Amino acid sequence: MLHEVSFLSYNKRDQVQGWIYVPACKPKGIVQLIHGFGEHSRRYLHMIAHLTEAGYIVAADDHVGHGKTAMINNTWGDWGNAGPHTMMEDEHTLKTIVQEKYPNLPYFLFGHSMGSFITRDFMATYGDELTGATICGTTGIFRGAKEVAAKIKEAIDAGKGKESDSQFTVDLMGWMCERIPDAKLGNEWICADPYVQQDHASDPFDAFTKPTMNQALYDFTQMMQCIEGTEWANKVPVDLPIYNIGGDQDPVGEYGKGIYEVTNWLVQTGHKVQTKVYSGYRHEIHNYADIKNEVEQGIIDFMDQILR
């Protein structure tokens, strides 16, 4: 069964577009899937199918400024003016909608890349409503984010918040192919598979190659700063099970360093975290043909263990 849902964003402007995928069996829990920067939720159809086959309802939406939500509202790269918690609050609204339809089921989050930042923000704000959470392709201290944020803030203060200066995006993320000297598309850091790269670059629902407004990019940097250090980790319920996964060739996670940085913040504040780093793999570990089934099964095993 598939439900299509629409709801008013936290930014009070956009109608967020979402989907609830229901398996043809008695569900054992719900997984809310939170996609990353510049992409959309249907890039996870393989994972969604695997999760539903395992007996989980899967809920997902396209963030403001992204995917079908951007298409419906004509707001590509524009996240509104409600600040860096906008997407997190939208995910909480989706969770409320899902639980109205399917109450009294264990509730998990899975977030990749920016989706992991949103998940971590959610964990710190509404973590007591969750059964567990998986963060994938996450960041520790994102290289240069504070310095770029200061530059963007100057442009916003000068009245250029709704403009798009591509140099800010280059400054923030242009270094991410530094270990890939033959990069041509500019997105090779996501996955070594050229078919995944081309699919990502050609996808009409992807916002990655479309301009991002200065205000949105600034909110992105602030989103990352909201989830730094033990100050963030202390806000996460200490009894919330967490699974932290990624690739050691992922620049977002500083090639493994940032992944462990996040785990260490959590461990230092009394949390129990399962951490798995896949050696030799880039950002989208769930899009490598040789390991995606293993990655997805690991997420399912993590949740199944909690439910036993």
Rank of each mutant, 00 (worst) to 15 (best):
V31H: 04
Y278L: 06
I299D: 01
K151L: 12
K95E: 15
G115K: 01
N244G: 02
Q305N: 15
E254F: 14
I152V: 02
T139Q: 13
A124K: 04
T230Q: 12
K162T: 09
H200V: 10
R179K: 15
H286I: 08
C25W: 14
A216W: 03
G67Y: 02
K146S: 14
T212C: 08
G161I: 02
H66P: 00
E100K: 15
W175V: 07
V238N: 05
D250P: 00
Y126H: 12
G229L: 10
T93R: 10
S116D: 04
F302E: 00
F108Y: 09
F122C: 06
R13C: 11
T230F: 13
A70Q: 03
V148M: 06
K68R: 14
L172P: 00
K28V: 06
V277A: 07
V58A: 03
G280W: 09
G174W: 04
T119D: 06
L105W: 10
Q99T: 12
T230A: 11
M303I: 11
H46S: 15
A207C: 07
Y10P: 01
V98H: 05
N73C: 03
N264Q: 15
T138C: 05
Y44Q: 04
E294N: 10
G186C: 02
D14Y: 01
P103C: 10
F7A: 01
L266W: 00
Q222T: 06
E284G: 01
D90W: 01
M303G: 02
N73P: 00
E129L: 11
E231N: 13
F110H: 10
C136Q: 07
P211V: 07
D182H: 06
K160Y: 12
D61E: 14
V236N: 01
T86S: 04
K28N: 08
C226Q: 15
G280Y: 10
T125G: 03
I180F: 04
L109T: 10
G258T: 07
P103W: 12
D182W: 05
E91T: 08
F208Q: 09
